[in-house]
Simulated scan of single mutants.
Amino acid sequence: MNDATIRHNPERERFEVLVAGNVIGKAAYKDYDGGSSPQRIFYHTVINEEYGGQGLAGKLATAALDETVSAGFRVVPVCPFIKKFITKNPEYASDTAPIAPAHLEFLNDVLAPRARA
């Protein structure tokens, strides 16, 4: 799909795919202070069903990971799609941090209040 654009929306902590100005997909993250280096935990990636099968999720992942690595973050792939994408694109492996219990506890703490709202 040639009319899709990808942008980083740091205020909403996500990378977005837009078609005709409408968000049709996203890769959501939370930044985490991992001590030795900043980390970005990707926890959810989705493309609207009607846009599936067009390679947009891969383009979204590429843009999100490239910008994250360029900004000096290590990637924590909690999201199954991002994890699988990194497996298929090993050039990102050296910029990945293993998922630790602290990452999952952090996500639970920061995402749980939204789920209750």
Rank of each mutant, 00 (worst) to 15 (best):
63 A>T: 13
55 G>Y: 11
99 I>T: 13
63 A>S: 11
64 A>V: 14
69 V>F: 11
43 Y>I: 04
29 Y>G: 04
56 L>R: 12
107 L>A: 06
96 T>L: 03
47 I>C: 06
70 S>N: 14
93 A>P: 05
35 G>V: 11
28 A>T: 07
39 Q>D: 00
95 D>P: 03
86 I>Y: 00
51 Y>L: 05
54 Q>P: 07
9 N>Y: 13
93 A>C: 11
117 A>H: 09
94 S>C: 06
104 L>G: 06
117 A>P: 01
81 F>M: 00
24 I>P: 07
91 E>D: 10
71 A>V: 03
107 L>D: 14
89 N>L: 13
71 A>E: 15
72 G>W: 08
88 K>V: 07
49 E>N: 14
55 G>T: 11
8 H>S: 02
63 A>C: 06
38 P>Q: 02
67 E>K: 13
102 A>D: 15
1 M>D: 01
92 Y>Q: 01
27 A>H: 11
65 L>I: 09
61 A>C: 11
49 E>Q: 14
85 F>S: 14
65 L>Y: 08
109 D>F: 13
97 A>G: 06
110 V>R: 01
6 I>C: 03
70 S>Y: 08
44 H>G: 13
84 K>T: 07
71 A>I: 00
67 E>S: 12
117 A>M: 14
60 L>G: 11
115 A>M: 07
78 V>H: 14
98 P>G: 05
59 K>C: 12
17 V>S: 03
56 L>G: 12
87 T>A: 15
116 R>W: 09
20 A>H: 12
105 E>I: 14
35 G>I: 04
97 A>Q: 10
34 G>K: 00
62 T>R: 15
6 I>E: 02
18 L>T: 02
37 S>T: 09
67 E>L: 09
37 S>N: 10
17 V>A: 12
105 E>S: 09
75 V>L: 01
101 P>G: 09
38 P>K: 01
3 D>P: 07
104 L>W: 10
93 A>E: 09
